[in-house]
Design a protein around this nucleic acid. Structure first.
Lengths: 333, 333
DNA sequence: GCATGTCATGTTAGCGCTATCATTAACACG
DNA sequence: CGTGTTAATGATAGCGCTAACATGACATGC
């Protein structure tokens, strides 16, 4: 593989000129630039950024950890990050932790070894060692998708509990009284748990009959698990008026289960989801959901990092960005 | 930020011993190892891989480019790659090209600047410069999701045309004769175009009435666009017996459009998709589809890279891996 | 004509690590 | 007791690039 020195020799210049030309510095004359690019082309040279970053102390990496890449909500956030990073010279280092803070910890270490210039995390719960590593790293950190009680640095998120509570209240205002909740079992999906807490809080606040909660499957629960959970709701509490699901995917599964059982939605039972996935807007009947601007979360988080990286003296720290949540009422309620 | 030399000084050893300890080399005594890790812990040291890779000539990166990260088929492939890479010391550098070979070209350059030890691409069509860069890079390349006419190096894929043709033949065997095809418009989605070609070929081969093709929307076409395309099929050719869609997402949209129009599926019209997405197995009626082992494609592609990286002298080149395709008949046909 | 400024280019050093070879210590063996 | 063998550690050099400074060429102004 040719090095920059090879290119410099071939073009009859010093390697600093090659470096400058490749950085689009205007300190290179047009004639020299042309000769350099001709040499680059002839040798098939490709700049080695890892060598460059060692010397310039800038790796050009931004790290992000999401729970899952197979979930279109988080994929949207990743897309928002990537798109905002475009043309900033920063590259995304993406990983997923499968909803595990232990896995997050080891991913954080793996990423910090690459010396990213900033890092975006999902959620506000991390292991002690992870927090320590992040605090020592000396780079901006953005926690997203949540409102951490004790933020590490910057935050772009929303309250999952409030969002779910808002959904319950909206539906209660339409006259529904007997609510069921479908979610996953374990403690791992902290955002799911907060949604459940928001559900319970709203039920209590409104003085409605006790919420009927079905916990089923390891989060993130699938369409199929949503269907099974709905079966469980219907057999335990046949008079349920509305089933609220931790996500649109489980809501869709629940809806299909109703179809199969010959129940009309929303006449016999109403169904609502969370996350405003494409499927909620497209299925029949269309599912009422809560929109949470996933793409925007990614975009804003990346923007915050870029601002901090580009103006290190003027950090936008401790300034919390609250993204919009919005109930979208559709045919299923 | 502390460096390895700081750790070495703190532990009273040379930096080589620190380096060895961090690499789990067995050339470090237990006592020294303990002292070193104590120092690492006290200083909050994190290894800098970019400095290490400059000297060791191994970056520990593997690059992958997929068309989109918001498509669960490709997300499955990315997941397969990541999971196979686990515990090999290799880290994934993931990007998406939005189905554009031009964007792919610039992504390939951006990735090669990080000196990945291997690269995984989606599809077999690339720009000339992209091909040249890859051939010069001196690293293993795996093309996936397709059977390129002129592979760059290694291949893990299947024939999109054959897969679609198999679906048509399976349905024709059940007695369907009037076929419609729903896909995207432009030339960008090469796999979509190959599926269409496979559809046409099968129709011709079987001597069926001319296929009715609706091209609608920029690929990847959405659920909503599938619904609109189905509207177009039904108004142009009301006697269509089965609508085959380029993906399950559009098939689902088409199915919902039938629901809304009061058409019974499959009694009034049958619907089939492609890709065996979660939704196809879960909606009502469940959609007949073609399973293409997306996760396995990622896993096998990563495995090929790992093999080539770990045994450079014994390259597994030019050995094509054909993944399984399988029609899954469900309630919608 | 000479000081001054500006632009283009080169020189030097060093980023933080690891490959390689050298060295030392400890021990076994005839 | 000398020799060889092995295990643990250290010293040195250099990976390929860029920051920082130095230099030289030319133009400008008085």
């Amino acid at each position: 593989m040719p090095t920059m020195a090879d290119v410099a020799r071939h073009a009859g210049v010093s390697s600093m000129s090659v470096s400058r030309a490749l950085k689009n510095s205007d300190l290179v004359s047009e004639a020299t630039r042309e000769r350099i690019f001709k040499a680059i082309d002839e040798l098939g040279y490709v700049l080695d950024l890892s060598a460059g970053s060692l010397s310039s102390k800038r790796t050009g990496f931004v790290a992000a950890i999401v729970p899952s890449i197979n979930n279109s909500n988080f994929a949207d956030t990743a897309r928002g990050i990537t798109n905002e990073l475009e043309n900033t010279g920063l590259q995304l280092l993406l990983a997923y932790n499968e909803y595990s803070v232990e896995r997050e910890e080891s991913l954080i270490e793996a990423m910090l070894r690459r010396r990213p210039e900033g890092i975006i995390l999902t959620g506000g719960i991390h292991t002690g060692r992870a927090r320590r590593m992040l605090e020592n790293a000396g780079i901006p950190v953005v926690e997203t998708w949540d409102l951490p009680a004790k933020p590490i640095d910057q935050v772009v998120g929303f309250s999952n509990a409030d969002a779910m509570s808002l959904l319950v209240k909206t539906l209660a205002a339409k006259g529904y009284r007997k609510f069921a909740y479908i979610g996953g079992t374990t403690e791992r999906d902290t955002r799911g748990n907060q949604r459940r807490a928001g559900f319970q809080a709203a039920i209590a606040e409104l003085g409605l009959p006790e919420g009927r909660v079905v916990s089923f499957g390891v989060p993130p629960i699938s369409m199929e698990q949503g269907a099974q959970a709905m079966g469980s709701v219907l057999s335990q509490w046949p008079d349920t008026e509305v089933a609220i699901c931790v996500s649109d995917l489980s809501a869709f599964g629940a809806l299909m289960e109703c179809h199969r059982r010959g129940l009309k939605v929303p006449k016999d039972i109403a169904v609502a989801g969370f996350g405003n996935y494409e499927i909620a807007a497209c299925c029949h009947p269309r599912i009422t959901s809560v929109d949470i601007e996933c793409y925007e979360i990614g975009r804003l988080a990346a923007r915050k990092l870029i601002n901090t990286i580009q103006n290190p003296e003027h950090p936008s720290r401790s300034e919390l960005v609250l993204t919009n949540i919005r109930v979208i009422e559709r045919e299923s309620t």
